[in-house]
């Protein structure tokens, strides 16, 4: 009996028919998506922290308002994604429990600190840039709610990248100290951004199944190469350099060759030993715990009002 449903399911996938929440799906498809979507959501929420750090220190009011809007967007993105994950049968509280206990991961890029205002520029250009590269294909992911959430996210994400690049552009045309600040930020954010695309294809065991189910439309290495090719051109406009002495245009492949990625650093950060892992998680846990009274008060108030209304109706 079950084999029949698997075939029908795969047939839909192959025909680009979207899978919706009430459709039959292999249990592994459901679990893979719950993990991927919830971790994507966690990444958005934790991602608010490194940039939120600079809201009170933005150089002027316009930049502050823009940064506030960006961080607010990230909250919204997290919420779209939690909402999509919940359609698969996991609750919001369960997802928060997984994040706070360390069972669920979030993108390890957010475990790096923001040390200067230029970091906000580097994050917008590189981190949001990498996210966009990943998210545009996901707009055609096979699971309907995830794909639709991605369409909404992508519409909002492009302003994020532009504001980041604009910050770096402004700094690059400024004083020597400002140029140095911009270059320093790029030096620190480049490799972690390149690592955002995940392990190399031959070390990414889930990729094959995710591609077959069209959860994922391009491999890690394909997206990473595209990102590097694009940034290698964009950096020229800034008059700064990408911190990779092996970055070089390859005429025969039509792509940029690039240097070795420090995979030790990648796995260390993924496993919890990055500069800010502990701080990020503690901040999230504290926010949850300190917000408990708000959640409880709101529920109690709603309950009181409901009872009052039914008493009045009686």
């Amino acid at each position: 009996m079950e084999k029949g449903f698997e075939e029908i399911f795969q047939d839909k996938i192959d025909k680009e028919i979207r899978i919706e929440p009430k459709d039959w799906m292999p249990e592994k498809y459901r679990q893979t998506l719950i993990r991927q979507i919830s971790q994507h959501a966690h990444s958005e929420i934790v991602g608010m922290l490194p940039e939120g750090n600079w809201i009170t220190r933005a150089p002027n009011l316009r930049r502050k308002a823009i940064l506030l809007a960006k961080v607010q967007d990230e909250a919204g993105h997290g919420l779209y994604l939690y909402s999509a994950a919940e359609t698969l049968g996991i609750t919001r509280d369960e997802m928060y429990e997984q994040l706070h206990s360390g069972k669920a991961k979030y993108s390890s890029i957010f475990n790096y600190p923001t040390l200067s205002w230029a970091d906000i520029g580097a994050i917008g250009w590189l981190v949001d840039g990498a996210a966009i590269m990943n998210q545009v294909p996901l707009c055609r992911s096979s699971f309907g709610p995830y794909a639709r959430a991605m369409v909404r996210v992508c519409k909002e994400e492009s302003f994020h990248q532009r504001q980041g690049f604009e910050i770096l552009l402004t700094l690059s045309k400024g004083t020597q100290a400002q140029k140095k600040m911009a270059q320093n930020a790029i030096d620190r954010w480049w490799w972690p951004s390149v690592m955002m695309f995940g392990p190399k294809d031959d070390e990414s065991p889930n990729t094959i199944q995710s591609m077959k189910w069209k959860i994922k439309r391009f491999t890690n290495d394909e997206l990473r190469q595209k990102f590097i090719d694009i940034c290698a051109e964009q950096i020229k406009v800034l008059g700064l350099i990408i911190p990779d002495k092996d970055l070089k245009w390859n005429e025969s492949t039509g792509h940029y060759d690039f240097g070795k990625i420090n995979w030790d650093e990648f796995w260390q950060v993924v496993q919890g030993n990055g500069p800010c892992n502990k701080e990020r998680l503690e901040t999230r846990k504290r926010a949850w715990e300190e917000g408990a009274w708000v959640r409880e008060a709101a529920s109690a108030y709603a309950e009181k009002r409901k009872q009052k209304q039914s008493l009045n109706a009686a």
Partner: peptide, 23 residues
């Protein structure tokens, strides 16, 4: 409503959606 294909035999019919309704 339930999805119209044979997959509906697999899951017991449940017309109250906790999840997002199909578009």
């Amino acid at each position: 409503s339930n999805p119209s294909d044979a997959a509906s035999l697999y899951d017991p019919a449940n017309d109250k959606a906790y999840r997002h309704p199909t578009f």
